[in-house]
């Protein structure tokens, strides 16, 4: 018994070390969205409102001032044009002229665009930064959220299955 007590610190430390090692693999910036499993939030901005959303579809939060948005844009274009995915865009904290110029330059993959100049719709969607992409199913329920720029890998692994393809 007494000997076991002296082993206790080592045991506690071993458990702690194991957790820390697991923790190293995780990404601390990943925050799961509480919206997943619930209907799309109620919002209405210039050009887009909750009633306009027809699933299955993607809702992509973007901005012309956001560099990673530029990086993921070709993927969105590919999804819309080649795969026929319906995408709604929300221009977050962006002037409509700037957002339109951005789309004029890179092409417009969106069925509809909402202009959320003051970020109010962003709060409804629980946005912490751009870009973020939500997946809606046929009933209009949020089934998945991707934080950060989309990658081909994430589209194949997460987005397309969530869309039911």
């Amino acid at each position: 018994m007494r000997r076991l007590l002296f082993l206790l610190p080592l045991a506690v430390f071993a458990a702690l070390g194991a957790y820390l090692y697991v923790g190293l693999g995780g990404d601390p910036s990943r925050v799961p969205s509480p919206l997943v499993g619930r209907p799309a939030p109620v919002f209405a901005v210039d050009g887009l409102a909750t009633a306009d959303l027809e699933g299955p579809a993607l809702v992509n939060i973007f901005a012309s001032w956001c560099v990673p948005c530029r990086a993921e844009h070709p993927l969105l274009t590919h999804l819309a044009e080649e795969e026929g995915v319906v995408i709604y865009g929300v221009a977050y904290k962006d002037k409509p002229e700037a957002a339109n110029a951005f789309l004029a330059e890179l092409g417009n993959p969106y069925r509809r665009i909402g202009f959320d100049e003051d970020g109010r719709a962003g709060v409804e969607w629980g946005v912490t930064g751009v870009p973020e992409t939500f997946v809606l199913d046929a009933e209009g329920t949020v089934v998945f959220k991707h934080t950060g720029p989309l990658t081909a890998d994430a589209v194949r692994r997460d987005l397309l299955p969530a869309l039911g393809r």
Binding site: V31, L35, P41, E124, G126
Partner: peptide
């Protein structure tokens, strides 16, 4: 706020 951003 917790509905949108979670307990976080």
């Amino acid at each position: 706020l917790t509905h949108r951003y979670g307990d976080y």
